[in-house]
């Protein structure tokens, strides 16, 4: 079964490129260009990992991540933030994200960070178990 990546990115070119790269790497990819409905999105998509841009309408990636972290059921979903922001390391620690990817990045950077956190994610193992 393919692992699912939910991407939040308002730059449609970057979103499309990430989708192409990750789809070619055998992931199922869902995309959103706004994040105000993140809790409903996560419920609907049930992703193994979330890739979140920080400067995204309407509430911003940071706030959106905090909303997800508030939900007990989603707390273990790995979240990787990606942005051109220079303080990604600090922000990553502040919001307890699993990792970060600084723009511009290479194809391998993207594939590696997704692979690393999907593999490490407890959530993925739990929610793939047969009932």
């Amino acid at each position: 079964m393919k692992k699912c990546v939910l991407i939040y990115e308002d730059d449609l070119d970057i979103m499309q490129l990430c989708k192409i790269i990750l789809t070619a790497s055998n992931y199922q990819v869902e995309t959103r260009n706004t994040c105000e409905n993140i809790v409903a999105d996560v419920k609907e998509v049930n992703p193994d990992i979330i890739l979140m841009d920080l400067w995204i309408p309407e509430i911003g990636g940071e706030q959106a991540i905090l909303l997800v972290k508030k939900e007990e059921a989603f707390r273990d979903i790995p979240i990787v933030i990606f942005s051109a922001n220079e303080e990604l390391d600090t922000i990553c620690k502040r919001i307890d994200a699993s990792g970060y990817l600084k723009k511009p990045f290479d194809i391998m950077d993207l594939k590696n960070i997704i692979q690393l956190h999907v593999k490490e994610g407890k959530y993925s193992e739990q929610h793939q178990q047969p009932i």
Binding site: A84, P104, D106
Partner: peptide
């Protein structure tokens, strides 16, 4: 500037 650079590079 970094967003379009990401697109060009990828």
């Amino acid at each position: 500037l970094r967003n379009p650079l990401t697109v060009i590079s990828l």
